[in-house]
Amino acid sequence: MYAFDFERPSTLDEAVAALGAEGAQALAGGQTLIPTLKQRLAMPETLVSLTGLAELKGISASGGVLTVGAASTHAEVARQTDHPGLAGLAGGIGDPHVRNRGTIGGSVANNDPSACYPAAVLGSGAMVVTNAREIAADDYFTGLFETALEEGEIITALRFPIPEKSAYVKFEQPASRFALVGVFVSKSEGGVRVAVTGASEEGVFRWSEAEAALASDFSPAALDGLSASAENLIGDIHGSPAYRAHLIGVLTKRAVAAAA
């Protein structure tokens, strides 16, 4: 990696100020950023560690909402019991090493098209809370590795409305074991959400036809005859767009079965 300065602020305000500097880059759990730096694919002047910020810590449920501090590790999210669908997703990310270092805020800020968390955030209709505002999931994910975050804006927490039922099922890419396709489904008073990760050239998205079909009948059978479009889906050595489209259907059924 190239040489860089390192700062570890202890308050959110200090972190925001540090990230205002030219060439500054936030560092959360580092599970994507550190390998990128090692490959010399990024050259930040300053890394601003977010691990010292008390404002980003803690997981609590109240009034039907689970608030997860952005610096919570996947392992911590996996241990909470208020939102089992989210816990199951977090417990299946990477390996124990990744789960004990990687954070939900880092993953959601990075928005890797094959990451698991974006499916839960979008599929739960969560709010992304930052130092400046709250952003609805539907407005947050804007493309591959792209989000509504402004330069220097820090995610402080995720607020998940706790659904009646939810589950995440992923099909792993054989090499990386990231999601070749992952589907998060939830059913709550507000309706049914189906969010798909791993599959699209444009990142995580909602499969609205499946949501409509499930709204009146939340069962795998409700999806019979429904197939996702292969348009704009990723094609690579691990699977064609048609295969990914097929998997979306299969995994959605499985997720509904797991949630029901």
Binding site: A175, S176, F178, I237, H238
Partner: peptide
């Protein structure tokens, strides 16, 4: 699982464990 794959320009598409299973 395993395969080393080149594209038509001779670029190795499976140059790391992210793609070489």
């Amino acid at each position: 699982l395993e395969q080393a794959v080149y594209d038509e320009n001779g670029q190795l598409l499976t140059g790391s464990y992210m793609d070489y299973a």
